[in-house]
Amino acid sequence: MPQLTLYTNPNSRGRIIRWLLEELNVPYTVKVLEYGAEIKSAEFLALNPLGKVPVITHGDLVVTETAAICAYLADYFADKQLAPATDSPKRGTYYRWLFFAAGPMEMATTAKAYDWRIDDENVQAVGCGFYQDMLNTLETALNNGPYICGEQFTAADVYVGSHIGWGIQFKTVEERPAFTAYVQRLYAREAAMRANQLDDALLPTSA
């Protein structure tokens, strides 16, 4: 297998990819980048001109954007069954919620965090719609089974669950029973706990 490397920072969405890699249980190396000069170095900007993590390299291939990395890894390691089969009706559901979290959910929660105005005048032009509509849509999806695609745990759960968990923590997602139960179920997974321990160990310690 080509060398798989995760570029990350423990205070970043790189935690999502670390968790997914632990779920996949495949060999990988980690390069931790500090915010500031290191993450804006010419060497790293050659991989991602935005100067943001996570990034993975897989041999000579570079993949950026967290949802794209999730989709790529789940497909490359298809034998791990972290994505529905390409001919499964659930494949569309999987894509739907993976990119719902990357699009409307992330935009709506960011708008809430920064108190951006979304109202009747501009909602049609705003990709996320109204905040409450976004939450209601997501909650309805979680009523269809223990996971976002029903009975099968997938890479979409890693991505969606991370966003819900962080949203609850930082008060950008309402603490609804369906959301808290979903996050608790996901965070109890061995791979999730292992990934958190690995990333927490990289956090700076207070003096």
Rank of each mutant, 00 (worst) to 15 (best):
Q81G: 03
N48I: 14
T57Q: 09
K90S: 12
V55K: 09
L73Y: 10
V53F: 00
S88L: 07
D79E: 15
L82Q: 10
G59L: 06
L61Q: 14
H58L: 02
S88I: 08
F77T: 06
A71K: 11
D87F: 08
L47Y: 08
A68F: 08
A46D: 03
T66C: 08
A83M: 12
T64H: 01
A85K: 15
V53N: 01
V55W: 13
T66E: 04
Q81E: 14
T57F: 02
G59I: 03
L47K: 13
A68V: 13
L50S: 13
D79P: 13
D75S: 14
K52E: 07
K90P: 12
E65H: 06
V62P: 07
D60P: 06
K80L: 03
N48S: 09
A83C: 07
I69F: 00
A46T: 00
A68K: 12
P89R: 11
H58R: 01
L50P: 01
V55R: 08
G59A: 07
H58I: 03
V63P: 01
F77N: 05
F77H: 06
V62A: 01
V62M: 01
L82M: 14
L82T: 12
I56M: 05
L47V: 06
P49Q: 12
S88A: 15
S88M: 11
T57A: 03
A74E: 05
V62E: 01
D75N: 13
T66A: 01
L47A: 05
T64F: 00
T64Y: 02
L47H: 05
K90Y: 12
A67L: 09
L73Q: 11
L82Y: 10
P49F: 09
K80N: 04
A71M: 12
P89V: 03
C70N: 14
T57E: 02
S88N: 15
Y76P: 03
S88P: 14
Q81I: 03
A83E: 11
I69W: 01
C70T: 14
L61E: 13
Y72K: 10
T57H: 05
T57W: 02
G51F: 08
A85W: 11
K52H: 04
S88C: 12
D79Y: 07
P89Q: 06
P54W: 00
L73C: 11
P84I: 04
D87N: 14
I69Y: 01
L50T: 12
A46C: 05
L47N: 06
D75F: 07
F77M: 07
V63D: 00
L47Q: 08
C70G: 07
P84G: 11
K90L: 14
V55H: 13
V63S: 01
A78W: 09
L50K: 15
A83H: 10
K52M: 08
L82R: 04
K80T: 05
H58N: 12
L73E: 09
E65F: 13
E65S: 09
K52L: 10
Y72Q: 11
V63E: 00
T57K: 11
K80C: 05
Y72N: 11
D60G: 03
A71I: 01
T66G: 05
Q81T: 09
F77C: 07
Y72I: 03
Y76M: 09
P49N: 12
T64Q: 06
Y76V: 15
P84D: 10
A71C: 07
D87S: 11
D87H: 12
V63K: 02
T66S: 08
H58S: 07
A68R: 13
V55P: 15
A74M: 06
A74H: 03
Y72M: 09
Y76S: 05
P84F: 03
P84T: 10
L73T: 10
